[in-house]
Every structure is written in structure tokens, then in C-alpha cells.
């Protein structure tokens, strides 16, 4: 009996993970397609396109975690009000940058490639954007929230460059010479 229980537990763990992984791929696939459709829709103005595509991607980006990682050690020294202000400003900045990039990749083809699971609570999903002269690799990085079973994006790598890592470095350099409130302003 005990053996059977263990076996079932194991099987169910494996099976439930498989479902999660499949979900991520299909959901991301449909989201990317949706964004591309929005971008190709000639009836929409540029602004509408941007708002719509941000809304499609919104639920899966964890801006709070991204903001926190990007500040590194400094995060712990902030008051909760400052944390909120920073997260708010950072989210705006990221969205703005995302929209700006979308504008460039209006008519391009996206291929969803491999999904990998380097750790039990990490999943990476590789996309390929076929541009006019080059191919770009985009990797979405997901993490699993503890105690829950929700997967969220905490970083995006464009051609091997981590967005969060880049901000982390920049913020740290900035804070060496300037104050936190100046950083907030510059965002």
C-alpha cells in the first residue's frame, strides 16, 4: 500500500508539472499571436495598438519582483512607501520600453521554440523573432510563486541580454553617486 501511495504521489507530481509546462507554452503562444494580430490590425491607431498589446501581456509579468531584483541590496533599505513608488515607476518604464520595441517589430514573424525547466521552480521559454536582416532570440523567464502554483515572468532576455540584470547594474551605478529620490525622478 505504502509503495502505491508513493508511486501515485510521484506520478501526480510529474503529471501536474507536465500540465503546467504545456499551459505556459500554449498560453504564451496564443498571447504572442494575439499581440502580433493587434500590431497588424490597420484599424487601430499606434496608441491603441500599444495599450492593447500591453494588456495582453500584463497578467503574466511580475513587475513587483522585477523591480525588486533590479534594485538588488538597496531594496531592503527602502521604506514600504518608497518600495511602492519605485515599483510603480519601474513598471511604467518597463512597459514604455516594451511598447517602444514592439513598434519596431511590427511585421515580423515569431516562432516559439524550446521550453526548458532548469530548476523545479524555473521555466524558460525561447522565442525567435525573424527580422528583415537578422534573427533575434527572446527568452522569457518564469518563476513559480511559493505555496501557489502560479508562474510569472521575472525577466526577459533579448539576444542574451537580461533586461533586469541591465537595470540592476545601471541602478547600482546611479546610486553610487546619486540619491534614491533622484533615481525615482529619472525613471
Amino acid at each position: 500500500m505504502l509503495n502505491k501511495i508513493i508511486l501515485f504521489c510521484l506520478l501526480s507530481v510529474i503529471y501536474s508539472h507536465a500540465i503546467e509546462e504545456q499551459r505556459i507554452q500554449t498560453v504564451m503562444d496564443s498571447k504572442v499571436k494575439k499581440v502580433l494580430d493587434v500590431l497588424k490590425d490597420k484599424k487601430l491607431s499606434q496608441k491603441q495598438k500599444e495599450q492593447k498589446s500591453i494588456r495582453v501581456m500584463d497578467g503574466i509579468f511580475d513587475y513587483h519582483t522585477m523591480a525588486q531584483i533590479s534594485l538588488g541590496k538597496k531594496w531592503k533599505t527602502l521604506s514600504s512607501k518608497e518600495k511602492k513608488q519605485f515599483t510603480h515607476a519601474f513598471e511604467k518604464k518597463i512597459k514604455h520600453s516594451y511598447v517602444d520595441k514592439l513598434r519596431l517589430y511590427n511585421n515580423q514573424k515569431v516562432i516559439i521554440k524550446a521550453l526548458k525547466k532548469p530548476k523545479s521552480n524555473r521555466i524558460t521559454l525561447e522565442n525567435q523573432i525573424i527580422g528583415k536582416s537578422d534573427t533575434y532570440k527572446v527568452i522569457y523567464q518564469f518563476y513559480k510563486k511559493k505555496k501557489k502554483n502560479d508562474w510569472y515572468i521575472y525577466d526577459v532576455r533579448l539576444s542574451g541580454v537580461s533586461i533586469v540584470q541591465t537595470y540592476r547594474k545601471q541602478f547600482s551605478d546611479f546610486l553610487k553617486t546619486k540619491s534614491f529620490s533622484q533615481l525615482l525622478k529619472s525613471l
Binding site: I19, E20, R23, S80, K84, E91, K92, N149
Partner: peptide, 30 residues
């Protein structure tokens, strides 16, 4: 198992979930 797979769908599938873009909403979340 059904629960766990259902939970996964919630954050990912709600396509038109509006963003929590005001600082007040962050309080709730955080």
C-alpha cells in the same frame, strides 16, 4: 491534481486582466 492545474490557468489565462498600475493597488498585492 485538478486543483493544481486549475490554479495554473488562473494567472495565465486571464488575458484581459487590467494592470495594477496605481500605487494603491500595489498595497493590496504586496
Amino acid at each position: 491534481q485538478a486543483c493544481s492545474s486549475k490554479e495554473v490557468t488562473t494567472p495565465l489565462i486571464t488575458e484581459d486582466k487590467t494592470s495594477s498600475s496605481s500605487p494603491e493597488e500595489y498595497t493590496k498585492e504586496c
